Amino acid sequence: MSRILRASILAFLFISPASISQEADEERKDSAQKEVEALQKPMYTPFVERYMLDEIKQLRIDQAKAKQELIQQIVDREHNSVDRAVAYATDTVTYFFYLIAAATSILVLVGWRSFQDIKERVHNLADEEISKLVQEYEKRLEVIERQLQQKTLHIEENREEIELTQEVQSLWLRAQQESSVANKIAIYDEILRLRHEDVEALTYKADAVLELNEPQWAVNLCHQALGIDSDNSHAFYQLACAHTAMGQFDEALRYLAEAIIRRESYRDEILSDNALQPLAESKVFKDLDKVIAKTPSPQTREKGN
């Protein structure tokens, strides 16, 4: 027994820690996979979306700061380049003046031209060269200043767009938590006041007014949405619900076919949606597949145009 015990202890000691760790990792992965498969509802909450929006906002702010710092560094380098160029030009002109002065001194001795005339010409030449350099670098500085103004304007527009997006998102969260249909419509109107062409707000408002038994109002809202986005599947689906409420089953079936062509998942919602129950119970509903087959897809319409 002692030999068997010693052999077992030695075998246990020689087991690789890596293999033990690998088995533990596999067990944790299996456990995590089982927990994920056992989930009954999505893990999404408004707080997660709020956190993601704040992170995106901070990321854009950091990006804007990085751009501003980069532009500032470029401007500083341009200034340094201007200073070096002016210093180089000044030194060059000075050395050139000394050279000319020496040459003119020799010429004056031989009687070719007076020293005063040569001095004036050298000064005039130097002034012209310096003026050209100054004008050139002033133009460059004006270009850099315009670029900085454009970047600043772009950063300001991004900041305003972030604030608008955040405000609209908070209104959507309020609409999801609101139980009163009238309050939902008021919130959708506020979203449309901020963004006049928000197709999603128009279609959700159409859904809300259908609950108030206002199908004609819903039809008008859906047509406004299709005027902005002609391929919006939710607008076609809401049109089908509105025409069903008005008893216009042929029109409802046509719009429902348009919605299914753009999103096949609507086919599963027909029987569970109370707004479409009269259509599903009507005789024309059996022709749904025929209407879908005769209706051209958006891609086919684009090719035809």
Rank of each mutant, 00 (worst) to 15 (best):
D268I: 03
I191H: 00
L5K: 14
D250H: 09
I270H: 08
I4F: 13
E142H: 06
S16G: 09
A11R: 06
I228M: 02
L202C: 00
R84M: 13
M1N: 11
V209S: 03
E26P: 01
Y188N: 00
S179A: 15
K132A: 14
A102L: 10
S233K: 07
D91R: 10
Q299L: 09
D250S: 12
I292M: 03
R50M: 00
K57P: 03
D83Q: 15
K294G: 05
A293Q: 09
L192R: 00
L10C: 12
L99M: 13
S114L: 10
E23W: 11
S233F: 06
R195F: 05
L148K: 13
L53G: 04
Q135Y: 06
V75Q: 12
E156R: 14
S81R: 07
M1P: 10
I9Y: 06
L53R: 12
R193Q: 05
L173D: 14
T45M: 01
Y44C: 08
A235Y: 01
C241W: 01
L153E: 13
I162A: 05
V93W: 05
T94A: 12
D189R: 06
E69F: 09
Q72R: 14
I56M: 10
N183R: 11
E269P: 06
Q73Y: 07
S233A: 08
T94D: 15
L226A: 01
V82C: 03
A225C: 05
V284C: 07
Q277D: 03
Q116N: 11
E160K: 15
I61T: 06
L107F: 10
Y204I: 02
D91T: 10
T92N: 15
T165F: 07
A257E: 01
L279D: 01
I106Q: 10
K139T: 10
L194I: 01
K290M: 13
T92P: 07
E37K: 09
W217D: 15
Q299C: 05
V291K: 02
F115Y: 13
Q216G: 05
D289V: 10
I100Q: 04
H223Q: 09
R113L: 13
I9V: 09
E35A: 05
M43Y: 08
Q58L: 14
Y237T: 02
A64K: 07
D198F: 04
Q248L: 02
E269Y: 13
K151H: 09
A11W: 03
Y237W: 07
R195P: 04
Y204F: 11
H123I: 12
E37I: 05
E35C: 02
D62W: 06
E78C: 12
R84K: 12
T244G: 02
T104W: 09
P278R: 05
I20G: 01
A235W: 03
D250M: 07
E157Q: 14
L99D: 14
Y98D: 11
E178H: 02
D83C: 07
S8F: 11
Q149F: 10
L288R: 04
R140G: 07
N158S: 14
A280R: 02
A240Q: 00
D207I: 08
C241Y: 00
Q149G: 11
A280F: 02
F12C: 08
K303F: 10
R84Q: 13
S31M: 11
Y204S: 08
S131T: 15
I106F: 09
A102I: 07
E251F: 05
S105P: 08
I144D: 02
F236P: 00
L192Y: 01
R77I: 06
M52W: 08
E136H: 09
